[in-house]
Computed example of a mutant assay.
Amino acid sequence: MEDKKALIYYCAKELFSAKGFKDTNISEITKKAGMAVGTFYNYYPSKEKLFMDIFLEENTKLKQTCFHSLDLNQIPLMVVKQMLILNVKGMKANPILKEWYNKSVFEKLEQVYLEENGVNSVDFLYDNFLELITQWQAQGKMRKDIDSKMIMMIFAAIINIDTHKEEIGLEYFPELLENMTELIMESLMNCSK
């Protein structure tokens, strides 16, 4: 049974990569997998759930790759800037992760996924980075008066601002993101607080 689920998963991943979420349907996925449409529903309740499972796995892989290529000997500001740059490049280079920027599609996907899986199911693997923040706090490189998990939420907010660049104004966005990141990081690195 796991072989069929894996086959559906990999066929869907190929189709989502080639055609995007909106232009891929369940019948195409099952046809590519050589099985009936009804078989799909034995493993996945919806196309959205399948896509989000693939998206989360791809996002986890990207975050791990980014993290492992960071120069952790730099000051926290430079590490975070480097992580943001690598993350944005990786998101835009991966056709599945690129759907993140298609606001109308991704809002619906996320809503359906959360309804099916619960709020705690979307964790984009920040464990390594959380450990790094805790380490920086212990070394006196980052404020200790803010919980490390709250600092992770601040970083998540910085990453998520990318989905609002049209509202902010494309002509201001790259500079705004850089200035905002720098101001936040300078505050977080102000260990006298």
Rank of each mutant, 00 (worst) to 15 (best):
M1R: 12
D3G: 05
A6I: 14
I8R: 03
K13N: 03
G20L: 08
F21N: 02
N25M: 01
S27C: 08
K31S: 15
K32G: 01
K32I: 02
A33W: 04
A33Y: 08
V37Q: 15
V37Y: 13
G38V: 06
P45T: 12
S46Y: 12
I54C: 04
L56G: 01
L56D: 01
L56F: 08
L56A: 02
K61M: 09
C66R: 00
D71N: 15
L72I: 13
Q74D: 09
L77N: 05
M78T: 06
V80S: 02
V80D: 01
V80G: 01
M83C: 07
L97W: 09
K98I: 00
K103D: 00
E107V: 10
K108C: 05
E110F: 13
V112M: 05
Y113W: 03
E116F: 03
N117A: 10
G118M: 11
G118Y: 10
G118W: 10
N120A: 12
S121K: 10
D123P: 00
D123C: 08
F129E: 11
L130D: 13
E131C: 08
L132V: 04
Q139A: 12
G140H: 06
M152W: 01
A156W: 01
I159T: 12
I159R: 14
I161M: 15
H164E: 13
K165W: 03
Y172T: 09
F173A: 06
P174T: 11
L177D: 04
M180V: 13
L188M: 09
M189Y: 07
K193D: 08
